[in-house]
Design a protein around this nucleic acid. Structure first.
Lengths: 201, 201
DNA sequence: TTCGTTACGGTACGATCGTATCCATAAGAT
DNA sequence: ATCTTATGGATACGATCGTACCGTAACGAA
């Protein structure tokens, strides 16, 4: 066994370059050479650690999802016990809003991949079997919180799930609008909080 | 003045090729040559009528927005008088959902442009000064309908506008999810109707 | 030290891209 | 009938892309 290198670490560094490029100039500017230059490695290394460009894009998405769920967990779990249902639901939703540089980059890259998946079946399949937290899981989790903390008595059956779908869709959409400069982050949060206030007390 | 040709018509035909390509294989596959081949014209004609690739993309978006607002008006206005506030609001929202081939293509292309605008300032500026109906206009229109047809008495000041924002964001987001195969169109409509039922009677 | 595998720098090839340019032709104006 | 100009076919250029390949430096095992 010769010349051992931490492959995982190298791949994360290169993937970080992919995210940076994708967030600042779009997925189509993520070329093998640009990634190499941004990561400060040779073209050959990008080939060596990811093989294809397709694999580079796919694996970089996987690594991004890993990091996202990791930092979300780190932000939420420590304080989860002292949170009511409303605060917890809000914290979950805020994870997908561009509140800081990291989440902003996450959302930009995620949207870029989402759009590419619309015309790339391989990527679409990869998005449907995520590495991190499934979207369906999040809906169920939020629905449980809504039922638990419902403001105006118990909801009709299935209503909480539909409200949870709405909240997630809303967060995604106004987050994207914020990135495009169509809303300010304050407006976006106000719109989201209006729905939270309605559902919870 | 020799050999006169209907420029508007030619540009619409070429733009249609742009939409088709963008919807099926993404904006990055919209190359001058691919567009020419899809439209059945020579590369030179695409250059002649649009000049740049940037202009090709920009003008094609303008033409798509024109067609969208046109067909939306044609679908809604004839029956608008016999509609209540709820039906009218629903009809407006359905215009941006992938209910048929044309609206599906519209939404796909629109999303593709939206994402590119996230890292292309020139496009972003173009999206902020739309040719068709402004997003802000739509919000105001929907807010008026909500106030008019409110189910549970009059809403607090500003609430209708926030609900209108929510409806538009929701339609966009679940429409996109439908395109990505993450929801069925029936699920999407059920989620949307749930909010409409809540706001109107 | 010797050897074999891993890691990787360097480079070249063919394809495709946007764009520019040269030139032919068709048809209204004179 | 001819001139003028809009229209557009054909082609070429330089850049950039993904990928393949050659060679070698590094380093653990023997």
């Amino acid at each position: 066994m010769p010349r051992v290198v931490d492959h995982q670490q190298r791949r994360r560094e290169i993937a970080a370059a992919v995210w940076k490029l994708a967030a600042s100039k779009g997925l189509e500017s993520v070329t093998m050479r640009q990634v190499a230059a941004t990561a400060g490695v040779s073209l050959r290394q990008v080939q060596y650690y990811f093989g294809n460009r397709d694999q580079l894009l796919l694996q970089s998405l996987r690594l991004l999802n890993e990091r996202s769920t990791e930092s979300a967990r780190a932000r939420i779990e420590p304080a989860a016990d002292s949170m009511g249902p409303k605060e917890l639901a809000r914290a979950i939703l805020l994870e997908s809003m561009p509140l800081d540089a990291q989440r902003r980059e996450q959302l930009l890259v995620h949207i870029a991949y989402f759009v590419r998946a619309l015309s790339d079946d391989a990527l679409a399949a990869a998005l449907r079997t995520p590495d991190g937290v499934d979207a369906g899981e999040l809906e169920l989790l939020l629905a449980g919180l809504i039922d638990e903390g419902a403001a105006s008595g118990p909801l009709p059956a299935g209503a909480a799930l539909k409200e949870a779908e709405m909240l997630l869709a809303l967060a995604f959409s106004i987050g994207a609008d914020t990135l495009a400069g169509l809303r300010t982050i304050e407006q976006a949060l106000a719109t989201l909080d209006h729905q939270l206030d309605r559902l919870f007390g």
